[in-house]
């Protein structure tokens, strides 16, 4: 089966499925993400905050049958903003908001538009804070957007291969974060527990 991103792009319903896939990943892994949470407060709620934000984003489009990718992206962003929880949820909502802005009025999400949308997502995420802290989710979305801009989707137009390469860049960016945010290097027992 030809991948929708490879040809004309994916429509709103396919984008919805991609967002739901992200939510399901968080349903399965949010406790692991909670354990990784040491900044700005080690209160172990990053995973659940991201999950609650994504649940609200996906609920917003659940009954929406629009074929427009731009329309679905805007509604996902709205749901994410309204349901955002904590720092990570708020950043996630800004990422969706920028992503939707990058789509503009595009009915279909093609690879070139995905590259543009990721750039907008990164810029939007950074504009939401006075003093950005590197080594956080901000760094990851920026490095993903940078990698997407460098990767040339043209040769094979294979969306799956493109996204796999992009995800590999994302993991490399994650592995570099302890060099950017030293608290990530500290053992868990060293970090003061969150105060009630």
């Amino acid at each position: 089966m030809m991948n929708p991103l490879a040809t004309n792009g994916c429509d709103g319903q396919a984008l919805k499925q991609l967002a739901v896939a992200g939510r399901i990943w968080l349903e399965q892994h949010h406790e692991r993400v909670n354990q990784l949470n040491v900044f700005p407060i080690p209160d172990g709620d990053t995973g659940i905050n991201m999950l609650l934000t994504m649940r609200n984003a996906c609920a917003e489009v659940e009954d929406d049958a629009s074929p427009s990718a731009a329309h679905i992206a805007r509604k996902l962003a709205h749901g994410a903003i309204m349901g955002s929880r904590g720092n990570s949820g708020t950043i996630l909502s800004r990422i969706w908001s920028g992503f939707a802005q990058g789509l503009g009025t595009a009915e279909q999400l093609s690879l070139p538009i995905l590259v543009l949308a990721l750039r907008h997502a990164s810029d939007s995420a950074y504009s939401g804070v006075q003093t950005p802290t590197e080594g956080t989710i901000l760094t990851i979305i920026r490095e993903l957007a940078e990698a997407a801009a460098r990767l040339d989707p043209a040769p094979e137009h294979d969306a799956v291969a493109f996204l796999e390469r992009l995800v590999a860049h994302g993991w490399q960016a994650v592995e570099r974060t302890p060099e950017q945010l030293p608290i990530l290097k500290q053992p868990a027992w060293w970090i003061p527990a969150a105060l009630a």
Partner: peptide, 24 residues
């Protein structure tokens, strides 16, 4: 606050961050 964020969520996170930093 940045326009286009959930103000209640931003304020709640701010309170937690300030309390944590000051107390620790």
């Amino acid at each position: 606050v940045e326009h286009g964020t959930n103000i209640a969520s931003v304020a709640t996170s701010l309170i937690s961050a300030v309390r944590y930093q000051v107390q620790t």
